[in-house]
Amino acid sequence: MATDRPVILVTNDDGIAAPGIFNLVEAVKELGDVVVVAPDSPQSGMGHAITIGHPLRLYKADIFGDIPAWQCSGTPVDCVKLARDKILHRKPDICVSGINHGANYSINVIYSGTMSAAMEAAIEGIPSIGFSLLDFNYDADFTVARNVATTITRRVLEQKMPAHTLLNVNIPIVQPHEFKGMKVCRQAYAKWKEEFDHRVDPRGKDYYWMTGKFVNMDEGHDTDVEALAKNYASIVPVKFDLTDMQMKAMLEEQWKDMS
């Protein structure tokens, strides 16, 4: 690979054969030297899981033309760790994850393998972006999402963002003429209200299938949910330091007799 071009690590959680990752490669391949390391099977909802109970496998995957690619038997986070240590032997200049089939806004960022892969890279000091399209369909139209991915990735590279930069980008289901643009937002206070449907299998054994609906409890106009509803792509800066600083200050004051 050329040494005067940025190295771009591409990963995802839908698996190396998912249409989303092909579209992400297309979106960023002119911006630098791309290397793909992705799971060999779908890993949605894995969050920040890592593999510790059995060996990891890593195989070359010749499916992106002349772009080097590997498929990994582990989680999205495993992919980033192996890419850094065994394939690149260095930190890439940026890590982009996705394009995920389905939303990762609001509380979904906690469960998302797409965002956890990007977060792992950010923990390692690599500016990172997770991209998600709100369309779950395998044959989703990624036209708008590709343009968004190109624009934001180029901006992060050109502006040389801080090492621990982590952006969560979601793209609405719109045609190009309906797309309003991009907005920097905060994460909405919204969550899935789950229910578990009780069923019985053909052998008479009970099992449960998770269902539910998404509930937005946030009336703010500066949230990712609001932006997406108005046909904007949402950009939410995310931190992996989960310290509640307001609570910390309160406890330091109220519990100072404990120190």
Rank of each mutant, 00 (worst) to 15 (best):
D4E: 15
T11N: 07
E26R: 15
A27K: 04
V28R: 02
L31K: 00
G32F: 15
A38S: 15
S44A: 12
M46D: 00
G47P: 04
Y59N: 13
K60H: 09
I63Q: 03
F64I: 05
P68Q: 10
G74D: 00
V80F: 01
K81P: 00
A83C: 14
D85C: 06
H89D: 12
G98L: 03
N100E: 04
N100W: 02
A103W: 03
N104A: 14
N108G: 10
V109E: 00
I110F: 10
Y111C: 07
A117Q: 01
S128M: 06
L133P: 04
Y138Q: 14
D141K: 11
A145M: 07
R154L: 09
R154D: 12
L157T: 03
P162Y: 13
N168E: 03
N170Y: 06
I171A: 12
V174F: 05
C185L: 05
Q187W: 04
A190R: 00
E195A: 14
E195R: 14
D197N: 09
H198I: 10
V200A: 08
R203E: 13
W209L: 13
M210C: 12
M210T: 15
G212W: 04
D218W: 15
E219V: 07
E219Y: 13
V225H: 05
E226I: 01
S234R: 09
I235H: 13
P237N: 09
V238Q: 05
K239N: 13
M250R: 14
